[in-house]
Amino acid sequence: MSRHDLQPKGDQPHVVRATVGWDRPLQTFFAQVFFRTEDEPADGEALIWFGTAPGELLTPEAVIAIVEPHVTIPPGLVDILNAEMRATIGVKDGTHQAHAKRSIFGSIH
């Protein structure tokens, strides 16, 4: 799994950060945007969260479109995310990952 924390834009004081990355076991990119809440003023709470289902977000562009209104996107992030995804091609689930997928999703795909 890869993970990149992104900083909020200056006009987004309610946003703490966003996180994007590649989840190899689920074969999806993921995006989270953390907003300040009364219960979590410093760390924020992930009120936007995509990429929790297998194959939900298939391109870096899709994941960036979710977080772009809230955070600054560093140059080259699309290429980095693509490279992280390609680096996992052919990597198979371990015994525990396969068991968990069968339990949660009914399949290992």
Rank of each mutant, 00 (worst) to 15 (best):
R36L: 05
V33Q: 01
F29I: 04
F105Q: 02
V63H: 10
Q7S: 14
L47I: 09
I66F: 01
V33A: 02
R17F: 03
H109E: 13
H96I: 15
I64M: 07
P8F: 03
G51A: 07
V20S: 03
D39Q: 15
V63L: 09
T88A: 06
H4Q: 10
L81W: 03
E38N: 13
E56W: 02
V16Q: 03
P41Q: 09
I64F: 04
Q32L: 12
K101V: 07
E84G: 04
A98F: 02
T28E: 13
E68M: 08
E56M: 04
A31G: 08
F34M: 09
K92N: 14
D93G: 14
L57C: 07
E61D: 13
N82Y: 13
T37P: 00
F50S: 15
L6G: 03
D39C: 11
D5Y: 09
W22I: 05
Q12L: 04
P75G: 09
R24G: 11
T37H: 03
K101M: 12
L77E: 07
I104S: 09
I108Y: 01
H4A: 09
A31T: 00
A42C: 11
A98K: 08
K9W: 03
Q32K: 10
E40R: 15
E45Q: 10
V16D: 03
E84V: 08
A53G: 11
F30C: 07
T95I: 12
L57S: 07
R86K: 13
P69H: 08
G106E: 00
V33N: 00
G76F: 02
T72H: 14
G90N: 06
Q27A: 14
G44T: 04
H70Y: 14
L81Q: 02
I89Q: 12
G44E: 05
G21V: 04
P54L: 06
W49A: 15
K92W: 07
A65Q: 05
V20M: 02
A18P: 03
F50I: 03
T95E: 15
T19W: 04
G55A: 10
G51L: 07
E38S: 13
A62Y: 04
Q97G: 14
H99C: 13
G55K: 04
A87I: 07
T52F: 05
